[in-house]
Computed example of a mutant assay.
Amino acid sequence: MSFETNKWIRVMCDYGADGVWDDDGVSRDPEALPLPPDLVGRILKWQEWYDQSCVDGVLPGDDFEMDAFVSEGLAIAQSVKVALPNWTVIYFDEANFRKYRIQSRSLPTFALSRLSFEYEISLD
C-alpha cells in the first residue's frame, strides 16, 4: 500500500530501517513521501544517528544521548505534520518505550498500551 493512499506515517527509528513506516508496519524510504528534500535529509540523518549508535543492532544504555535523540525525532515528526497537514503522523518515542518495557516486566501485559510511547502529532 502506498503512503499516498492511506496518508498515514510513523516516524520511528529501528536498526537498518529508514526512519519512517507505513500503517502496515513496513519501513519505507522517506524519499517516497511528498516532503521537502531538507526534511528527508533530517530523517535519514536521524536514522543514521540511531544506526551508528547501535551495538549488534541494539541501542546502548547510558552512553546514548536519548534526550537529544528523542527531541530531534519529535521535531522531525512535527515538521512532517506541517509538511503533510492532512496526514496522520504518529511519533514513536524511544525513551518512553524503554520505560514501558521496564514497567511492563512487573505488570500484566494489558496494563500498559502503545499510548505510553506512541502518539499522534497534531498541529495544535
Rank of each mutant, 00 (worst) to 15 (best):
V20R: 00
V20G: 00
W21N: 03
W21Q: 07
D22N: 15
D22P: 09
D22L: 10
D22M: 03
D23H: 04
D23W: 00
D24S: 11
D24G: 08
G25T: 03
G25N: 08
V26H: 07
S27Q: 04
S27K: 01
D29N: 15
D29H: 08
E31H: 12
E31Q: 14
E31N: 14
A32G: 14
A32T: 15
L33K: 06
L33M: 15
P34H: 06
P34V: 10
P34I: 11
P36T: 00
P37N: 08
P37T: 07
P37M: 04
D38C: 02
D38W: 02
D38L: 06
D38S: 14
L39P: 00
L39V: 02
V40E: 00
V40I: 15
V40D: 00
V40M: 01
G41I: 02
G41V: 04
R42I: 03
R42S: 14
R42K: 11
K45P: 00
K45V: 11
K45Y: 04
W46A: 08
Q47F: 01
Q47N: 05
Q47H: 04
E48P: 03
W49I: 05
Y50I: 04
Y50E: 07
Q52A: 11
Q52C: 10
Q52D: 12
Q52S: 13
S53Y: 01
S53T: 10
V55A: 06
V55P: 02
D56Y: 10
D56G: 10
D56S: 15
D56L: 13
G57A: 06
G57T: 10
L59Y: 09
L59T: 14
L59S: 13
L59A: 11
P60L: 07
P60W: 02
D62L: 05
F64G: 08
F64S: 07
F64V: 15
F64D: 07
M66L: 15
M66E: 14
D67H: 05
F69L: 02
V70W: 02
E72Q: 12
E72V: 03
G73Y: 01
L74S: 07
A75I: 04
A77W: 01
